[in-house]
Design a binder for these strands. Structure first.
Length: 611
RNA sequence: GCCGGCGUAGCUCAAUGGUAGAGCAACCGCCUUGUAAGUGGUAGGUUAUGGGUUCGAUUCCCAUCGUCGGCUCCA
């Protein structure tokens, strides 16, 4: 089995349960439409700026873009003008005509287009394709003509612009993008657009964008008072407010319980360590650009930690380990700090200080397949508990430059793939995409809007056990090197929180809700009974508030709804007389009056079920 | 870091060379309410920060900080 799998990996043959959505998409009509729309856009842009330089313009997920070098910056008004012109060009019903040309002819045709000339040279020398990506095959040079526009392009395209629905395209935004993604090369202007087969699909897509905007964790985070960042504190450093803090506490409590129940030991390690530690680990060699400047303490340099691993390795090394002790699993919610360039910071999703839900497993080679199985299962179980049920895995294999012997890599890759197949998780192989120290699986979840987020990562490490000279005493009484797996399940508390916020649009399941119950007395005379009920519910462990303001009931309900309280309990004369509460749910559902005990039982049950 | 946009009251936004305004929130009243906004009043601003142009700058220019859309990178 393992040999077969290894062969699979070597040949990069994507069979079995491996997904090939990308290939399907690339051969679809929609892909052609988008790619062709990009050409139409380029034609419209060149009409506006006859001296403009065009770079590349591929179809991407949900749309397309095209990069231009233009004499001035584009404005939103320009986008509207361009879009309108595109619609006219589409109506002209131009054919897309493909021609194969010699390199000389191509160079002559694009003699004023410096980026195209560079691409042609890449094609000519046979190591770059027409998007400038490395390739092994020397592809023929093809051009596509449509209207007055000619582009160096491999295609495929629609046959005629009439196959593009002018009612189903929209230009979205302009952004800067480096030529070939290289920051040392010119900055171009990229126009993003979207294109669909029908007007309705466009509408759906725009609705989805709008919905994503509405549930943006930065917006919801402000509305629900979950977190903030602050000028004076610094970029990319998150302040967790009481509401966010309560959610994090619930997440961490569950996380701790699950880890303890599943054979982990919880450990705690410091926020910094001496320079020599990071030299031993190699971080000062290959990770220094992400680390902050050292702190001088009594003639010694210390670094704030960007990772937890070196500390965990020292916990392992703190005593002699027997093969009987393994596997060992050390877990820590470890807070790390990494330098990120200011332009990449983004809400909770990309920050400079964050807490990884980290762990390191140490095991014997023979335990490795089981250990991977366990880890992936545990990871999926954990994510399911938070309401994520769709997963996509990415398996990254041995890159050219790597440490560790061939057999270790083969075994590890096979174990990873084997587990993915056994668990029926769709996956893609990123051949050669692993870190130099070991292969890995990255798990992405799909959220309520179908967007993918990378959370879990399970990585082999053949490097650190070597560098720290880890060993255990085997059955044979000799020293052996353990395998080490580094894993994070939620990824980081910050990013996971951001994903959770967007997944639930702030309407967290009851067990996570920072506020669970709002009591709504209708008039002042109901206030004291409301406080009595609140005290009882609090005693049972619920997170309860009473709105005893002078607002009317309608306003109280509105406020509680906006704050996403899962339960609102209205209390008036009838309830007070009967010792009841009238339940209204966040969903708008209105089960009505019930005894306090009945409500309590209902709430505790839903909390236990994590719904 | 780079390209482009933005930064006005706690929040959402007006005002555009002539010394800043609304709604919500807050606070003080009145109302005592039955499933998403009852009502009157009060207070709240060195218009991100620092420089420049100008008789005069929130408005124009420069720099810094922050932020947004991307590039690159990643938990």
């Amino acid at each position: 089995m393992q040999r077969a799998l290894s062969k699979n990996l070597t040949n990069n043959r994507h069979g079995g349960r491996m997904s090939n959505k990308k290939e399907d998409y690339k051969s679809s009509q929609l892909y052609r439409i988008r790619h062709s729309t990009a050409h139409v856009m380029a034609e419209a842009v060149l009409e506006m700026f006859p001296d403009g330089q065009v770079a590349i313009g591929p179809a991407i997920d949900d749309g397309f873009y095209y990069d231009f070098d233009l004499p001035r910056s584009l404005t939103p008004d320009d986008l509207e003008t361009i879009e309108n012109r595109m619609k006219e060009l589409i109506k002209a019903k131009s054919d897309f005509v493909c021609e194969e040309v010699s390199a000389e002819d191509a160079k002559d045709l694009f003699k004023d287009q410096v980026y195209k000339l560079e691409l042609i040279e890449g094609l000519e020398s046979g190591n770059l394709d027409d998007d400038g990506n490395p390739t092994d095959e020397k592809a023929p040079i093809t051009i596509y003509r449509s209207g007055k526009f000619v582009d160096l392009c491999r295609g495929p395209h629609v046959e005629n612009t009439s196959q593009i629905n002018g009612q189903a395209i929209k230009l979205l935004n302009v952004a800067g993008a480096y030529w070939r993604g290289d920051e040392h090369r010119p900055m171009l202007q990229r126009i993003y657009g979207t294109a669909w087969e029908s007007k309705d699909e466009l509408k759906d897509h725009l609705w989805k964008l709008e919905e994503a905007r509405k549930r943006d964790h930065r917006k919801v985070g402000k509305e629900l008072d979950l977190f903030s960042s602050n000028d004076e504190v610094g970029q990319g450093l998150i302040l967790w407010h009481p509401n966010g803090g309560m959610i994090r506490h619930q997440i961490e409590r569950y996380w701790d319980d699950q880890h303890i129940a599943n054979g982990y030991d919880l450990i705690y390690t410091p926020h910094m360590g001496k320079a020599s530690l990071w030299e031993t680990s190699g971080h000062l060699g290959f990770y220094k650009e992400n680390m902050y400047s050292p702190i001088q303490i009594e003639d010694q340099e210390y670094y704030i930690k960007p990772m937890n691993c070196p500390f965990h390795l020292h916990v392992y090394k703190s005593q002699l380990r027997s093969y009987r002790d393994l596997p060992l699993r050390f877990a820590e919610k470890g807070t790390v700090y990494r330098y990120e360039r200011s332009g990449v910071l983004h809400g909770l999703m990309r920050v400079r200080g964050f807490t990884q839900d980290d762990a390191h497993h140490f095991c014997r080679p023979d335990q490795m397949p089981d250990e991977i199985d366990f880890t992936l299962n545990f990871s999926i179980d954990m994510l399911r508990a938070f309401g994520f049920n769709e997963f996509q895995a990415y398996l990254s294999t041995k890159p050219e430059k790597s440490v560790g012997d061939e057999k270790m890599w083969r075994d590890a890759e096979a174990a990873l793939e084997d587990t993915l197949i056994r668990m029926g998780i769709p996956y893609e192989v990123d051949a050669g995409g692993g870190a130099f120290y070991g292969p890995k699986i990255d798990l992405k979840i799909k959220d309520a809007l179908g967007r993918e987020w990378q959370l879990s990562t399970i990585q082999f490490d053949f490097n650190l056990p070597e560098r720290f000279d880890l060993s255990y005493i085997g059955e044979d009484g000799k020293e052996h090197r353990p395998y080490m797996v580094h894993r994070a399940l939620l990824g980081s508390m910050e990013r996971f929180f951001g994903v959770l916020i967007e997944h639930y649009a702030g309407a967290f399941p009851v067990w996570l809700s920072p506020k669970q119950v709002m009591l709504i007395p209708i008039a002042d005379r109901h206030n004291s009974y409301a406080h009595e009920v609140a005290a009882k519910l609090k005693k049972a462990g619920l997170r309860v508030s009473v709105d005893d303001s002078s607002d009317r009931m309608n306003a109280k309900i509105r406020n509680a709804q906006k704050q996403k309280y899962p339960y609102m309990l209205v209390i008036g004369d009838r309830e007070m007389e009967e010792g009841q509460v009238a339940l209204r749910r966040r969903s708008g559902e209105n089960p009505g009056a019930m005894s306090v005990d009945a409500f309590l039982a209902l709430a505790l049950d839903e909390i236990a079920q994590k719904i």
